[in-house]
Design a protein around this nucleic acid. Structure first.
Lengths: 164, 164
DNA sequence: GATGAAATAGCATTTGC
DNA sequence: GCAAATGCTATTTCATC
């Protein structure tokens, strides 16, 4: 599932995770390759799935969402049908902007946004009723401690095997 | 803090949050404006801070991180010095890829990645010792229930006031 | 198998309206 | 916000290492 990356790939990925909003020629200068070679590497990494997509990251507050909330969810039941039902409900709720299932003290962790408490309330209710959540712990996001940061990538050291 | 957005802005932001990896002329066609006008709107939204940045989103697993973990953190102390110390530790740990302080049953929620358990262990230890965390609840990410989705933006209805 | 250089087609960006 | 024009860029091609 993992993909081999050399030092140049790692450098490219680091740059693209930080700021993908610049010309390919600039990336090429940074990594010391020609624009064509740079373009090829980036295209390959997209095809390989290392780069999932390139997107704009918005500031939720500036976009009008006064409330940003993490939700720790415990499901009432854990059979396949219940889990599918929950996933479907999560998918249908616009205010849930991401969700992961997890192993640990809870079953899933969700990120939601809302303009006000009433809007939040509607989403929470839906998750309890239609979603089948038995316990919802709401964590109000107060501040960003560390912004979304690049992955600490390492080059796949194929050549170091020679000395091993 | 919030910014006024009309229907075209909302449409542009929705498209850019889904896929920012396409030419401005295509966006222009989608929203029915000229390329110049489209470019101006996007630039203004960047300056206004609605668009924080444009980045590549990687697939952690494909990039080699077998473990992706949410961490629920309770701090031992809550004075300013302790919080600054924790923030500094979080900032210095490469494997912590994002962190927010929250209000609720815990103090902060972190997202971490690791190649293996040993690597995870190191980061957890640092958060306990130097970071001053008194309780760490580890939630292992099993699956993505809902991918990072566009914000459910609404146009700021300035004109509807005429009928109000 | 990947890179570099050159060439073409296309786009970003500016200016005047 | 539009249309036209300029300059630069993305993208392909092909020879090369």
């Amino acid at each position: 599932m993992a993909v081999a990356l050399d030092e140049i790939d790692v450098r490219l990925l680091k740059e693209l995770q930080t700021d993908a909003d610049r010309p390919n020629v600039e990336l090429a200068r940074i990594v010391g390759l020609s624009p064509a070679a740079t373009l090829n590497r980036v295209r390959r990494m997209k095809e390989a799935g290392v780069i999932r997509h390139i997107t704009a990251r918005l500031d939720s507050a500036t976009a009008g969402f006064a409330l940003q909330v993490y939700l720790l969810v415990t499901l009432a039941r854990h059979d396949d049908a219940a889990e599918r039902r929950f996933a479907a409900e999560v998918a249908s709720l616009d205010h849930v902007i991401s969700a992961d299932s997890v192993a640990g003290e809870i079953d899933a962790i969700l990120m939601l946004v809302a303009h006000d408490v009433a809007e939040l309330h509607v989403t929470l209710s839906r998750l309890s009723t239609r979603g089948g959540a038995s316990r919802l712990v709401t964590l109000l996001r107060l501040a960003e401690l560390k912004p979304s940061s690049p992955l600490p990538l390492r080059a796949t050291s194929v050549h170091s095997r020679r000395s091993a």
